[in-house]
């Protein structure tokens, strides 16, 4: 949704909007994770990161497919390859460059924890059968992502001096992007009125508790909440990183749009 778009009015418009928000988060996150393939800290972790990336891109693909069906677009690729950065609705944290393993793990943990509570509540709320079916299937995988990233936060936090320094600085750097997770806009309010979304602020405390407990167990400091918080990415106000990510992701498909690439 760019700043030029209007708030969805009909139930279907709301549904498409929600599908794209969830889909964009997952595509962009999966894309960044996929950059690790062949460069992981150990073979086993290379496999693990690729599994999460595959889950994420797979989730995005099925969410987009459903949106394409509703909107009469050709297929899921329309949303991934033929929209510009101001149209993408993902939160900004996910588009940040991968930096190092600690940064990836911290981001993975914060986002998985958020997804965990979001999907848990969405499953109880969403009446649309096809959408709910996807949520249930994806929820199982999200639980594993949370477990995997949480275990790594503990190991890096309570590991060596170097690992602690790295993961602490990752959380410090990421913190200003966590505010956005719980920004509720009119689009979400409209979706809530159609039972297609939930009030994210309702689980903010649970999320904070999980994050706090994990960081404390990992002997890490919880960054200060009283700081500048980035906002607006869901409405198209992204960081500069997304444009570069999309330039790479979309170039081939856009260079030859009439060719068959599936």
């Amino acid at each position: 949704m760019s700043t030029l778009d209007t708030i969805p009015k009909t139930k279907q418009e709301s549904l498409v909007e929600v599908l794209l928000r969830l889909g964009d988060d997952r595509l962009i996150h999966g894309h960044r994770l996929s950059e690790w393939a062949g460069h992981g800290p150990e073979l086993e972790e290379d496999l693990a990161l690729a599994n999460v990336a595959l889950d994420m891109i797979g989730h995005a693909s099925s969410l987009y497919s459903y949106a394409a069906k509703l909107e009469g677009k050709q297929d899921e690729d329309h949303y991934a390859y033929f929209r510009d950065d101001i149209d993408f609705k993902n939160i900004a944290m996910l588009e940040l460059p991968r930096v190092d393993f600690a940064f990836t793990i911290a981001k993975q943990f914060l986002f998985s924890a958020f997804s965990y509570f979001l999907y848990r509540d969405l499953i109880d709320t969403v009446e649309d059968e096809q959408f709910n079916g996807m949520l249930q299937k994806h929820f199982k995988e999200i639980k594993y992502h949370l477990r995997h990233s949480r275990e790594w936060v503990l190991r890096l936090g309570d590991g060596t001096e170097e690992s602690k320094k790295r993961i602490q600085s990752a959380f410090n750097d990421l913190w200003m992007y966590t505010g956005e997770l719980f920004d509720q806009d009119d689009t979400e309010k409209a979706a809530i009125s159609h039972n297609l979304y939930v009030d994210v602020t309702s689980f903010k405390e649970e999320w904070m508790k999980l994050v706090k407990e994990t960081l404390e167990e990992a002997t890490l400091d919880v960054p200060d909440n009283d700081q500048y918080m980035f906002s607006g990415a869901r409405g198209g106000r992204h960081t500069e990183h997304l444009g570069h990510l999309l330039a790479e992701m979309q170039f081939l498909r856009r260079s030859y749009p009439d060719a068959e690439w599936k």
Binding site: H31, S34, L47, A50, I57, Y64, E76, D77, R253
Partner: peptide
Amino acid sequence: WITRAPSLKRKMVLLAKVQDEAG
């Protein structure tokens, strides 16, 4: 080519294949 694969399907196929190689 994972980050530049021209469709989501091909992106997943390629990533799964590269992952298999690690396996």
